[in-house]
Design a protein around this nucleic acid. Structure first.
Length: 569
RNA sequence: GGUGGCGUAGCUCAGUUGGUUAGAGCGUGGGAUUCAUAACCCCAAGGUCGGUGGUUCAAUUCCACCCGCCACCA
């Protein structure tokens, strides 16, 4: 038994995420966590909402709410939606909770002790009418290079020139539109990342089992050279800046930059978990306190790779303390909506809460993992979704369960029949199943989700092929024992198929296992060797044929949804 | 613009550490079957592996350039 610490990139607090966000980190992380638990390993699966930063403040203002009240509400909404998708987090925390404040301050003070923090004064745009400094992106004005009138403070969208907000002509606040702005001196803390460059590189060098994409992104940043990075902002919503545990003089109206405190929430969310459950968080995160044998696995979208392979490790290593660093990471490309972007404002695409109103979570889980954006961006289309779930879930798997349980009901009194012996057909099936199980386990272990889904489906197909040849409905006319073998094997296959489908479609798998009466302790991942895979159920065991597991998605539904969610527009 | 990724059957994708007839699922056509959600099972058709050059006995697989799409650039 091994120990796995699994984290999913933190969803930003600002509204319910779309299917693409789900597919790129929370869902695969959940599938992997479930797989490792089924294997009998000790798993701690952690996520949280990322709640600080200007976008949260602005969204709250737009909603006419206090930012904390806004985050409270949005956190609950996201938590409920993640439960609706059966995301089996051991804890779903909040980066605004006290443990993250304490840890973020702790890390900064450690970094400062180690000579990695420097206080510097810079000029920033202050909006007198808004009563605040403006982040670069929230200053707009005329580009000094090309004259484009809606250039942002960090970059001109027209000519791509990188800008400082001070350079803009006729600058105005994007928040209020006010032009009553002036540059003012303000102090900030800078993290001296270049000092850690060699150590981070050495660490990346030895991280040979990362995916190629992750390493090349890390090397790209290292090759370009790390820079001193400002880790504080002039905002009120966030983690206060301290020195020796007390408010840091001159920083009373400042907080840490959201990108500094967000990854620390991985640890802090685990602290939240320990406070709520009595668990020992240091056993998972501190190598001096029992975390040496932990395998830490991170899931994220490709945009997050640099932060997880370079920035956060700088914080961790720079602390000089024995914190756990990532061992394996899995990065995803994007799911697109018909090749384009999901967009809340333009009503393009399906968001997590709406998806649950349309269909059970298993449909989405299956499709998104069977088509996970692993090597490239993957388009979501309703038509492909319909084809995939109807074929895989309804026709191949659901119908398999239905045909064999119905037959057992009408001809064998809804019980696992006794009688008859395995023949060549069953022996061959056993070999084929074992081989596929082995491949499936390997794909799960390697976090190859498309391949794991394809292999799961291939198992289901073996079941249908077997029934076709064994044909108990024909055998029953002349040889009841022969039919009994077919039905017994068929029912055992149902149980086995449901067990290995649990990581992808936990609800449906649970229904099947309940219907067949498989107790919880017998739902573990099959280890393969020497198991009686096809004769594990007690003979005479009564079952209740489940209702149709997966209703097909109808053309009319697809048509309606396509219009409603902006398909192809 | 810089860097990285991708471009393989109608669609979504595997694959080739360079080597006999390039694979899967879906979709399509045909057949078989009736236990089952008109499902399942079998068979078949379909590709000059983005383009152009180069290296090689041999390239879809390596190299160069080009075209197209995507991401990141703190």
């Amino acid at each position: 038994m091994a120990r796995y610490l699994i984290t999913s990139a933190l969803p930003y607090i600002n509204g319910v995420k779309h299917l693409g966000n789900l597919a790129g980190s929370q869902l695969p992380a959940d599938v992997h966590a479930r797989y490792r638990r089924l294997e009998g390993h000790e798993v701690l699966f952690i996520c949280a909402t990322d709640e600080h930063g200007t976008p949260a403040e602005l969204a709250a203002a737009e909603a006419g709410q206090d930012v904390r009240a806004y985050c409270d509400e949005q956190h609950l909404i996201q938590k409920r939606v993640s439960e609706g998708f059966n995301l089996s987090f051991d804890w779903f925390g909040r980066s605004s909770n006290p443990p993250n404040h304490r840890l973020t301050q702790h890390f900064c003070e450690q970094l400062e002790k180690n000579g990695l923090i420097e206080e510097r004064v810079t000029k920033q745009i202050y909006s007198i009418d808004d009563g605040r400094f403006l982040p670069d992106r929230y200053v707009e004005g005329t580009c000094p290079v090309c004259g484009f009138e809606r250039a942002r403070g960090d970059q001109c969208d027209n000519c791509q020139t990188l800008l400082d907000p001070i350079q803009l002509k006729n600058p105005r606040s994007k928040i209020s539109g006010s032009t009553n702005l002036e540059p003012r001196d303000t102090a900030h803390l800078f993290l001296l990342q270049p000092k850690m460059q060699d150590r981070v590189r050495a660490w990346v060098d030895q991280s040979t089992d990362w995916p190629h994409l992750a390493r090349s992104i890390a090397y790209k940043w290292l090759d370009e050279g790390l820079i001193d990075r400002s880790i504080t902002r002039d905002l009120s919503w966030g983690v206060k800046v301290t020195k020796d545990g007390k408010p840091r003089p001159g920083f009373e109206s400042k907080v840490f930059y959201v990108w500094f405190d967000a990854p620390i929430e991985y640890i802090a969310s685990t602290v939240e978990w320990s406070e709520a459950t009595g668990g020992n968080w240091e056993r998972w995160w501190r190598e001096d306190k029992g975390a040496k044998d932990v395998t830490y696995v991170e899931f994220m979208g490709k945009d997050n790779v640099a932060f997880h392979t370079v920035s956060f490790p700088v914080t961790i290593m720079g602390s000089g303390e024995p914190w756990k660093l990532v061992d394996r990471l899995k990065a995803f490309n994007w799911v697109t909506w018909y090749g384009g972007k999901f967009s809340t404002s333009e009503q393009r695409g399906i968001f997590m809460d709406v998806a649950l109103d349309l269909l059970p979570s298993d449909y989405w889980r299956w499709y998104l993992m069977a088509n996970a954006p692993e090597t490239a961006d993957a388009p979501f289309t309703l038509e492909h979704f319909q084809q995939t779930v109807n074929a895989d879930l309804a026709n191949v798997f659901g119908n398999f369960v239905n045909r064999i349980t119905r037959f057992a009901e009408t001809r064998f009194e809804s019980a696992v029949p006794d009688g008859g012996e395995f023949g060549e057909l069953e022996k061959k099936l056993e070999d084929d199943i074992s081989a596929k199980l082995q491949a499936l386990s390997a794909h799960h272990a390697a976090m190859e989700f498309r391949k794991a889904a394809a292999e799961t489906r291939a198992l289901w197909v073996l079941g249908n092929e077997y029934l076709q040849v064994a044909a108990p409905w024909t055998a029953i006319k002349t040889d009841r024992d022969r039919a009994a073998v077919g039905v017994r094997v068929g029912l055992n296959l149902c149980a086995l198929f449901a067990i290995v489908a649990q990581p992808f479609i936990p609800d449906a798998a649970g229904k099947i296992l309940d219907a067949i009466g498989v107790p919880n302790e017998n739902r573990k991942w099959p280890s393969g060797a020497g198991e009686r895979l096809l004769d594990a159920l007690p003979r005479g065991l009564k079952l209740t044929p489940p209702d149709v597991l997966f209703k097909k998605v109808e053309d009319a539904q697809v048509g309606e949804w396509a219009a409603r969610f902006g398909a192809g527009s």
